[in-house]
Design a protein around this nucleic acid. Structure first.
Length: 827
RNA sequence: GCGAGAGUGGUGAAAUUGGUAGACGCACUGGACUUAGGAUCCAGCGGGCCAGCCCCAUGGGGGUUCGAGUCCCCCCUCUCGCACCA
């Protein structure tokens, strides 16, 4: 038994939290199996990168997930709630270089520390399913999946131009090039042509796009972002034959209706035909110089900066397939090689970029789509006319509506066999090669005789060399001769291992499936377990992963389905993108110096207070402004409940059977409020996880219990109210509630209790307030029985003194009665 | 430029989806109990004439309605994402 606290006492969170955490750990309270008759529920928070210590963003993310997990358990679900570590990546290598330790040592130390922090928060994970992507028992299965995908043609190797830092000897991601220089050593970044491995995500572009419509449990924002990222365009692919040559320039356009308005052709500086086109022409030197300068300028320019439209004539012409007209070919700095074909048919009258270019170089502007209203005069135009209209100067299509003409012109191009309907995506294949050490080695071998040979599955895993010993080398693999040297599995001759490692996004693309089969050592995924658990019912994480991670995970799910591992089309049924944690108006970050350390908070207030505050301060999808005094408030609330329960625990000697007929007024009011609170809290969680309003509902009930009363409240009613408070609050403040549950004499743990069900009859008000409005403005209020009929309400309202005064003897024009709510009298 | 979202007290936010605007909390003010209060309890707390359920008030302006924070139109501001995508 606890000593009765004096008013100065704070509840002893430290002892309480440690006691329950120890018990949960010993009893493996949240261990689950897919062999269950209960309905399943899979709740998952995006796993963390083991950077060193958890931050407030983690605290918020995992608090939200934990409340959902605990709530769903109490609702009778078999809940899968796992945790792991997204453990490969560059920070480990940087830290290793700086401190002279191995990336593996740094990573595992961080994992151990952070695991302790998560346990101190009392999060209800099935720790037996913990995984770390840098461990061979994870990445060996990723290597196996790689081989299966390679065999199925889902992975290929090609040569591309990458950003290369010579000092760091590695490829840089686009985000790591700052003003044309390496983010780490500030040396200029060079374009380098090299081979790399790619996932054929474009092969799934259409399905990835179409299935977005099924993701009704995702924020619209994220769906839209993915849709834009995939960027589907439909139009005409068409060839413009080069004059005096048997070659042609392939173009793609979404505006075939403007093809009669083409007055020049623009090529990207990287276009492969440029060499042929300028060879021996007087313009050759000028074009080559322009290409050189533009390539450099593009690199130097920051990514969000639009360059002035510039270009140069190649001296060559191509022919418009519809008119046979000669079209001068230019090389232009604004044409992207990565999109479409790298060649653009230029229609300056109806495309703003072409318009600017034409004006700069004195090229003709020909109107072929006349919008409604004033006829367009090319000489007077100040910008391109990009809207719809009626075709003019367009041969047989003249007079046609531009929308219809799009289709008609495609049909004609197909008939004459120089073009066809075509779909283009903005999405590009996913480059997964990294020239770094701390990642999963790509399991292939290069043989001079056999070419690229997959590593036989029996030889997996291809271990990361040196990761086992603390002093092992962590140079990039291409600098490790012992790793490279091998023999060809096919012909047995000396061969070289692939030295690229996989992009870390590959690991996070399937971890949610691996959680269903922890420790399985015969396959990456147990099909039965995956079929039971997947899809993830509720996924929770930051919106910063809206595109990359969430798109890759969707892509992987579809590949794994096609390989026979999974039975689902989509990995995450519902997605909650939680807002950032803000302090002093900015995201918490070391560089801004506004970080709040969760450890210190837990030390000072306990985990339950920290959880409660982060759930109470804002709804989960919104940014949360950190407020130290708000934390105090949450702590104060828990202390208040603690004192309340302990001081009134005598009521727990009574059974909680409420005899409605015997209740006095305050008892009836509390009984009613109790059931109203159950309803409100349940609905708040159920509809949109708005824990902030759920908690305020509980606070109201607590306030009512504490409110002074004329007559003593019935013990059974009091007990019901206190038990309800503890049960509803349990998912948010689990140690606290579990402790008080035990203190008040319960034998079974609150963790095993069922979520309370509200009694509609008990929640019903028997007397309600009716608002009386005159012309829509509140003038007075009526206290009436809840079941007062409309006629009576009308009579009572008109009889009110105040209303009578405003009526001044006139008949009301109209009286609107909303039963249970208000009466509005229109004068 | 395109797309998405958001503007409510001093402050974080509520508002059963068209029905009492500001629940709940923080801050603040006054009081009680105290050697003390940064503990606890009680009371107050959008603005105004503070006289009252009187008037004004949900970024601004119109509209629909008996009634609008909520629905429609126009405008302003902020945040996020994409961005020369042919």
């Amino acid at each position: 038994m606890q000593p009765a606290p004096t008013t100065n006492d704070r509840y002893d969170f430290k002892t309480i939290e440690q006691r329950w955490q120890r018990r949960w750990e010993e009893e493996k309270t949240w261990k689950v199996s897919h062999r269950s008759d209960q309905p399943k529920y899979y709740v998952l928070e995006m796993f963390p990168y083991p950077s060193g210590r958890i931050h407030m963003g983690h605290v918020r993310n995992y608090s939200i997930g934990d409340v959902i997990a605990r709530y769903k358990r109490m609702q009778g679900f078999n809940v899968l709630h796992p945790m792991g570590w997204d453990a490969f990546g560059l920070p480990a290598e940087n830290a290793a270089m700086k401190r002279g330790i191995h990336p593996a040592a740094w990573t595992y130390d961080n994992i151990d520390y952070m695991r302790g922090q998560l346990k101190a928060m009392g999060l209800s994970y099935d720790w037996d399913r913990e995984l770390a992507t840098c461990r061979p028992d994870y990445y060996r299965w990723e290597q196996q999946l790689f081989l299966k995908m390679l065999a199925k043609g889902l992975i290929y190797r090609k040569e591309t131009t990458v950003n290369w830092c010579n000092d760091c000897q590695t490829v840089l991601a686009r985000e790591q090039v700052i003003d044309g220089a390496c983010w780490r050593c500030d040396q200029p970044v060079l374009p380098k042509t090299m081979y790399g491995w790619f996932f054929k995500i474009t092969g799934y572009a259409e399905e990835l796009l179409a299935d977005l419509d099924t993701l009704t449990g995702w924020p619209e924002k994220v769906v839209t972002m993915q849709r834009n990222w995939i960027g589907k365009s439909t139009g005409l692919a068409c060839d413009f034959r080069i004059e005096d040559s048997d070659q042609a320039i392939a173009i793609f356009t979404t505006r075939p209706d403007t093809i009669f308005g083409v007055t020049f052709m623009s090529l990207a500086v990287e276009h492969p035909l440029i060499d042929t086109l300028v060879q021996g022409k007087p313009q050759e030197e000028a074009v080559r110089a322009f290409v050189r300068d533009t390539v450099l300028a593009k690199q130097r320019a920051s990514l969000d900066q639009e360059l002035d439209k510039r270009g140069v004539f190649t001296g060559s012409y191509c022919l418009n397939p519809f008119t046979g007209e000669r079209v001068p070919i230019y090389v232009a700095n604004f044409v992207l090689m990565e999109y479409g074909t790298g060649a653009v048919m230029a229609v300056p009258a109806h495309d703003q970029r072409d318009f600017e270019f034409a004006r700069a170089y004195g090229l003709p502007i020909r109107v072929v789509v006349q919008p409604e209203g004033e006829p367009l005069d090319p000489a007077a135009m100040t910008e391109a006319s990009e809207g719809p209209g009626v075709l003019v100067n367009s041969g047989p299509f003249t007079g046609m509506d531009s929308t219809e003409a799009k289709q008609a012109i495609i049909v004609e191009a197909e008939r004459q066999r120089f073009g066809s309907a075509h779909v283009t995506y903005r999405l590009r294949d996913w480059g997964i090669s990294r020239q770094r050490y701390w990642g999963a080695p790509i399991p292939v071998i290069h043989c001079d005789h056999c070419g690229i040979v997959p590593v036989p599955e029996a030889d997996l895993p291809i271990l990361l060399p040196g990761a086992g010993e603390p002093t092992g080398s962590h140079s990039p693999l291409h600098q490790q001769p012992d790793f490279i040297a091998t023999t060809c599995p096919s012909c047995g001759r000396p061969a070289r291992r692939e030295t690229d490692t996989l992009d870390t996004f590959v690991e996070s693309s399937w971890y949610f499936a691996r959680y269903t089969s922890p420790g399985l050592d015969s396959a990456p995924i147990d099909r039965k377990a995956a079929a039971y658990w997947l899809p993830v019912d509720q996924y929770i994480g930051g919106v910063e992963h809206a595109i990359l991670h969430l798109l890759y995970a969707r892509f992987f799910t579809k590949m794994l389905r096609d390989l026979g591992y999974l039975e689902v089309d989509e990995p995450f049924t519902n997605l909650l993108t939680q807002g950032m944690v803000i302090k002093d108006g900015a995201k918490m970050s070391k560089s801004k110096g506004n970080v709040v350390d969760p450890n210190e908070l837990i030390e000072q207030y306990g985990a339950d207070t920290v959880r409660l505050f982060s759930l109470f301060a804002a709804p989960p999808e919104r940014d949360l402004e950190w407020n130290a005094q708000g934390v105090d408030g949450a702590f104060r609330f828990l202390n208040r409940v603690y004192r309340m329960v302990v001081s009134q625990r005598a009521c727990f000697d009574q059974p909680a059977t409420v005899d409605l007929d015997a209740l006095n007024a305050p008892s009836r009011a509390l009984h009613r409020k109790t059931h109203q609170t159950i309803r409100r809290v349940t609905e708040s969680i159920e509809s949109n996880f708005h824990f902030n309003t759920a908690i305020s509902g509980i606070m109201e009930l607590v306030n009512l219990v504490a409110a002074p009363v004329d007559e003593p409240v019935d013990d059974a009613v009091l007990r019901e109210a206190l038990e309800t408070i503890l049960t509803l609050l349990f998912p948010m403040a689990p140690h606290f509630c579990e402790e008080l549950w035990q203190v008040t004499g319960h034998e079974r743990a609150l963790n095993d209790a069922a979520w309370p069900v509200f009694n509609a009859e008990a929640a019903k008000e028997d007397e309600i307030t009716i608002v009386v409005q005159v012309n829509g403005k509140v003038r007075t209020k009526l206290q009436v029985a809840a079941d007062t009929d409309e006629h009576t309400l009308r009579r009572l309202a008109v009889a009110e003194e105040k209303v009578a005064k405003m009526l001044a003897g006139q008949e009301p024009k109209k009286i609107i009665v909303v039963p249970g709510k208000l009466v509005n009298i229109v004068v």
